[in-house]
């Protein structure tokens, strides 16, 4: 009697746990099924390397290089912003800020991380873009640089909080050992703490990067939207996510455009998947290295 009930409960929990696995499998299956037909009308090389993205022209052209390049540029700019800002804040919070400053700053960073991306988009459109236009004398402020900066700011709290955790995992005893050998605070930070937290910090950067590359709403609003291979950071661009979001509505289900958008989605999925696996592997190795896990 009791055991049947227990079994039932166990089964329910197992179902809950495995449903996420099933969901992941489902997503992967759908992505592949809807994406692969793209190669019946365009070769993989022409698809990935083609420089013309005219999906609704007659005849249509499906070269996604401009979109990939746009994502790469925007993500690169975001990294230039979020790595120094995020790692810098983590180091400051962990090493230099007193307990009171830390108590005030940490929640602020967490709030920043939880702001919906559309709000960053609004901010980008109404404040950042006009500022860029003014500052650099651009015809239009919506461009790769604006998008990259906004994405960088968005990814900063992610990087900061994960990097701060990584620093927190570094055992106190390393710091004591370093001080006891006559090292000062700065030497201890640079030669012991940061290297010990190094792979944890890389994990933070990779996750920040995967956040930036997958972000959609903001880039849709501030990147400018032109599906052209960018030649400068001031060019308007259309990253992969923005292309999917903007065009999916008008693509006929089962049509060539539809399959091409799915192929972009698959590429994005694979990239972020690889990033996340890498982040996980690095952080596991790191915990092992610090003797925190077996």
């Amino acid at each position: 009697m009791n055991t049947t009930k227990e079994k039932l409960i166990k089964l329910l929990f197992a179902a809950a746990a495995f449903s996420s696995l099933a969901l992941l499998a489902g997503i992967i299956i759908v992505l592949f099924r809807e994406a692969l037909p793209v190669f019946s009308f365009v070769s993989p090389l022409a698809f990935l390397g083609g420089e013309s993205w005219y999906p609704t022209a007659e005849p249509p052209e499906f070269g996604v290089w401009p979109l990939i390049a746009a994502s790469a540029w925007v993500t690169g700019i975001a990294l230039v912003i979020c790595v120094p800002l995020g790692v810098g804040s983590a180091l400051y919070l962990h090493e230099l800020a007193g307990p009171r400053q830390r108590a005030a700053l940490k929640p602020v960073i967490e709030v920043l991380a939880s702001i919906p991306s559309i709000i960053y988009g609004f901010f980008g459109m109404t404040v950042m873009a006009p500022f860029m236009q003014e500052a650099f004398g651009l015809p239009i402020g919506l461009c790769a640089l604006t998008a990259g900066v906004i994405l960088g700011v968005m990814a900063t709290p992610t990087v900061a909080s994960i990097a701060e955790d990584a620093l927190g995992y570094v055992p106190r005893s390393f710091r004591e050992a370093s001080f006891a050998l006559g090292a000062n605070r700065w030497e201890t930070l640079v030669k012991v703490i940061v290297p010990a937290a190094g792979s944890g910090i890389s994990t933070a950067v990779i996750l920040g990067m995967s956040r930036a590359i997958g972000e959609t709403m903001t880039v849709l609003m501030v990147a400018g939207g032109a599906a052209v291979v960018p030649s400068s950071v001031f060019d308007p661009v259309r990253p992969m996510t923005a292309a999917i979001a903007a065009e999916m509505g008008e693509a006929a289900v089962g049509g060539e455009h539809y399959h091409a958008l799915f192929a972009i989605a698959l590429a994005l999925f694979l990239v972020t998947f690889v990033f996340n696996i890498a982040a996980e592997l690095i952080s596991r190795r790191y915990r092992l290295k610090l003797g925190l896990a077996r």
Partner: peptide
């Protein structure tokens, strides 16, 4: 400067997550 003259060994062994050589070289290097 004082800690260079007065060294300390702790209760729990606390080598740095570096190589054996780097561990010993750390003090002289800094």
């Amino acid at each position: 400067d004082l800690r260079k003259r007065v060294g300390m060994v702790f209760q729990k062994p606390n080598p740095f997550p570096k190589t054996i050589f780097e561990n010993v070289a750390y003090g002289p290097e800094v």
